[in-house]
Design a binder for these strands. Structure first.
Lengths: 332, 332
DNA sequence: GGGGAGTGAGAGAGCGCTCTCTGGAAGAAT
DNA sequence: ATTCTTCCAGAGAGCGCTCTCTCACTCCCC
């Protein structure tokens, strides 16, 4: 491996000073065309690429941003494409801005300190936190230390930190209203964990519509895993054998619920209509295909990245969700 | 945000020189205990964290490694947990080594240059390439430039580059042999893309066992997506309505094949036995549950990381795969 | 033609750190 | 007592870059 050329070398070859070479490389306009040309030629010939460490040292910028996933998220990761959507969206914007994406999957306890140490020391220009639990101390800590932070998902304690959230309440409302419109009378729900804002919001949406349409709420709580969906569904069937619809707070649990319904001999959507949330790929392939609420995950990633890169104003943003009607709620 | 303390500040507070403070921070043994103590106290009190850029500048190390996914991979990503397994494995080892993980999802054409530029300039101590196609020029280019490279998956052109591969041939052989042992006579396969080493190897494994057991091979080719599994299965049924088993080169296509079989009125495993490959979570939840070949993806990530970090010798490693027998090939 | 404005290029400091080299103190050997 | 070793701490260079400051030069107006 031959030594990488430095700016000095480029400058020498182009017959200019290091300062001028730097100006050209960084795209300053105040350089005479012929000199700019000469420097660019030297850059090409030498295959020069700026040394990021040296640049960071003086500019105090790192040209990279961190995307932090708490470990529990990573576990879900495998079956839930929400996170891969976010990663892709973030990655696109980061790439466009010619910066780097540092991925941090924090192990439980120790991980926080690692992220905090890493992020508060200028290694990174900003941090995106794909927080599952709205009570994470990390965003607040980083913000207080002066690190730009943006969260995916609204924190459960009100704060002034910028975030990008999905319209979970609205999505749940639309889903449940859809069930009402289909003439369903006893609409149950399998809620998500109540320490996650998505879980809370989706349950609230469900409750709001039931209240308005004069129906009783029937609630079981799961933890967003498929297994918990199965057992929650069983419990619901035991609690109210007459139920004719169920709104499930995510698709994974909805898949589990479908299993339980099949085992209980209930027809979907004939006996029981089912709506999920997330629109994971598997939702199109269930028998019958699952009606669900689609979330713009890639878009979420893009917005998160744009905010943390200061390409758009840091704000508290809510992204619209969309009801996708399939066979689990309607017969063709 | 108050300014971050420098080594100079720490040294001043501890009443020593910057050099000594550096020695303590970097764990040199040749420092008197009481001085070490004093420096450590100063570090704690000031909340000092080394500036990575400055350190990199002088050490010529970046303390970070890049994990590169070609974009096509990312697309599969969403439904296939192979990649999230690799990410998790890599992340664990990287974290343990106290280094950073830079994730690069390369858009098609331009991405290569970006990765090449980035990696050849010392921004990164090594590169892990989650290459899907064995013909990627990138690994070779980087290696020639002196960047440590490790690939996931064997390149299709023989080379001396280190890699970690799954035993695709062995897994396929075991899967097909299992079908033979179940007394299946007409065993078809849905192969993966033949420009990917995994696709090629799994087909080779299938062919080897059929040859040995005196059966005719019946082949359709898919592209590892669910849809392609469905249409390939339809084609196989048209080609040979008498087939009584099918080995599918990945689970996603196997799910698609199950759909086609159901639509064609074939019972699984009664009429047709099905084996997949990958053991994705969904495989346990199909009706019937899918017999498949499990791959140690997290382990793969760990090995990749350990090699690129020089924690173990760079070599050409093959990881064993394991047949998981479920209901799609046997009746209880 | 002289002075000011404007423009483009070079000199040089310095970002925070590591590491070699040097020097001084203490103990061991002659 | 003197020289040699050993050990530990400090001095200082320098990693590659950016950016301010300075200076030289051209152009224009009075």
């Amino acid at each position: 491996m031959r030594a990488r050329p430095t700016l000095e070398k480029v400058a020498a070859r182009a017959g200019v000073s290091r300062a001028t070479a730097s100006r050209v490389v960084n795209g300053s306009t105040r350089v005479a065309p012929e000199i700019r040309e000469a420097v660019n030629r030297a850059v090409d010939e030498l295959g020069y690429v700026p040394n990021q460490a040296a640049r960071s040292l003086v500019t105090q910028r790192a040209d990279s941003i961190a995307l932090v996933f708490p470990e529990p998220a990573t576990r879900v990761f495998s079956e839930d494409p929400t996170f891969s959507g976010i990663i892709r969206g973030v990655s696109m914007e980061i790439e466009e801005a010619d910066k780097q994406l540092v991925l941090m999957l924090t192990g439980l306890a120790g991980g926080y300190q690692r992220v905090e140490r890493y992020a508060t020391n200028g290694h990174v220009d900003g941090v995106i936190i794909a927080s599952m639990h709205g009570t994470d101390p990390l965003p607040g800590v980083l913000a207080r230390r002066g690190v730009p932070v943006v969260c995916s998902g609204r924190p459960s304690v009100p704060s002034s930190l910028p975030y990008v959230d999905m319209d979970n309440v609205g999505g749940a409302e639309r889903a449940v209203r859809h069930l009402v419109e289909q003439g369903r009378r006893r609409i149950a729900t399998i809620a998500g964990p109540q320490d996650m804002i998505a879980g809370i919001d989706r349950l609230n949406g469900y409750r709001a519509v039931l209240r308005d349409s004069d129906r009783r709420s029937i609630v079981a709580v799961g933890d967003f895993t498929r297994e918990s969906g199965t057992s929650a569904m069983r419990q619901l069937l035991a609690d109210d054998p007459e139920l004719d619809a169920v709104f499930v707070a995510n698709d994974l649990m909805a898949l589990g619920a479908l299993t339980a319904l099949r085992q209980a001999g209930r027809q979907v959507p004939g006996d029981v209509a089912v709506v999920g949330f997330d629109d994971i790929p598997a939702a199109s392939y269930t028998e019958p295909p699952l009606t669900t609420v689609r979330q713009p995950t890639v878009e979420m990633g893009r917005r998160l990245a744009r905010m943390v890169l200061d390409l758009e104003e840091k704000a508290q943003v809510m992204l619209p969700t969309e009801l996708v009607v399939r066979g689990s709620t309607t017969t063709p």
